[in-house]
């Protein structure tokens, strides 16, 4: 299983990879099922990893992952490469879907706050990751250390926990307006640390 994961993820950067995700997505938009299969192989572990980070339950995470890929299939024609990479497009969709699932299910409400607040490092304990993933992880982890403790908590609860800003406010016992500020300032700081600019 772990071997498989490594092989699959390594495909992301393999020089032998015949097509980029963007090219594949372009073909998917025209109904190319084999391109869809290839795209799926390249990015499904990323999508499921993220969804499972939020939902925890594996079976439910696979369901949501299926929804996400059906949506990729349905709306591939709406993807515009000039606006960003295919991974960005798909992972944004994935996060949104996972959050929607949490908001819509009672199970989501019962989740413990620690799901969101636990350290990135904890989730990484027993993971065999590729070089690419490791580098990305370390970069983000390092950037996270530049945030204030409260910014970090708020961003983690919202992004990794899937909690709404009002839920975050309740958990951290701070006013909603303060949460908004922290989320925005925290993300801006992360943006600058990570060198994200359009």
């Amino acid at each position: 299983m772990l071997d498989l994961m490594t092989v699959d993820s390594a495909g992301d950067i393999s020089p032998a990879a015949p097509a980029t995700k963007e090219e594949l997505l372009g073909r998917v938009a025209h109904g190319d099922q084999s391109a869809f299969g290839e795209l799926y192989d390249q990015i499904a572990p990323r999508v499921l990893g993220l969804v499972k980070r939020l939902l925890v339950d594996h079976a439910q995470s696979e369901e949501v992952t299926q929804e996400i890929f059906l949506e990729v299939w349905q709306s591939a024609s709406r993807y515009e490469p000039t606006r960003g990479g295919a991974s960005t497009w798909i992972l944004t969709m994935a996060h949104r879907r996972a959050v929607d699932r949490i908001r819509s299910s009672q199970a989501g409400r019962d989740r413990d706050a620690k799901i969101g607040i636990r350290d990135l490092a904890v989730a990484y304990d027993h993971v065999v990751e590729t070089v690419e993933v490791r580098i990305e992880h370390e970069r983000v982890e390092k950037a996270m250390t530049r945030l204030t403790q409260l910014q970090r908590q708020a961003v983690s609860l919202a992004y990794y926990g899937g909690f709404s800003h009002s839920e975050v406010a309740e958990m951290l016992h701070i006013p909603l307006g303060t949460v908004k500020t922290r989320l925005r300032d925290g993300l801006i700081r992360l943006r600058d640390e990570l060198g994200v600019a359009s």
Partner: peptide, 12 residues
């Protein structure tokens, strides 16, 4: 999305 890419992949 960078936060998302930092999450460990899970094989479906």
């Amino acid at each position: 999305v960078a936060l998302g890419l930092a999450v460990a992949p899970v094989q479906p």
